[in-house]
Nucleic acid binder design. Structure first.
Lengths: 107, 107
DNA sequence: CATTCATGCAATCATATGATTGCTTGTACA
DNA sequence: TGTACAAGCAATCATATGATTGCATGAATG
């Protein structure tokens, strides 16, 4: 059941952007996470609620505001499911190589 | 865009089970993948189509049947998105430890 | 060559999902 | 203490999604 919630949560682009935002800077409030997203506060609030039930985001009350934090554990479990240990090493090496090549191109 | 397709594809439990099935044994046909799933062949076919557009599954025609293969690359990219390199090492170590403990409990 | 089996295509339908509006609660601070 | 700001709750609505049924195509096999 739990993993289903994780995948459903990740299915929406707005929610993934929220995770991106938290990955860039943890501990943001609802209002901060709303900024420049073009949808209503309630919509964002609902998205955050879904991310929390999936345990991808943890929220903590701080006075009248609520701070949100990214939890990477469930994401890691996704990779664990379909990628064998050795296969993962290979894919990581590939990804690293790709990154290096891209960096080299930054003149 | 491409990543959106991947996440949408992973959002459905039937599709995840299909990936599980292919992870266990690659190169299965549509009919084989239908077996014991309790939904119509057309439903499975559509699911496989979605997995293919997400590039999570690759299909190859073999006479009158079609063989399906799991492609782990997009899954690996998910982890790459929200988990830093060092954080990943830490999470992997944790997962390995967890597995080891579970193995020890197998009498 | 005809029939059987694996798959593809199209239309339809119920339900799930994401967003909005309006109202309420509750904390801060002047 | 009352006003402004952060967040929660509820009802509604349009669209997306997953499944089904029925028919079409096309390769293997007798």
């Amino acid at each position: 059941m739990s993993m289903n919630a994780v995948f459903k949560a990740l299915a929406d682009p707005v929610r993934r952007q929220l995770l991106d935002s938290l990955h860039a800077r943890n501990g943001q409030t609802l209002s901060e996470l709303c900024a420049g997203r073009g949808i209503s506060r309630q919509a964002v609030s609902k998205h955050l609620e879904i991310l929390q039930t999936a345990n991808l985001v943890v929220a903590e009350k701080r006075g009248r505001e609520k701070l949100h934090t990214l939890n990477p554990v469930p994401i890691h479990e996704i990779a664990d499911r379909w990628i064998g240990k050795y296969e993962r090493r290979r894919l990581e090496a590939l990804a690293d190589l790709k990154r290096q090549i891209e960096e080299d191109h930054h003149d």
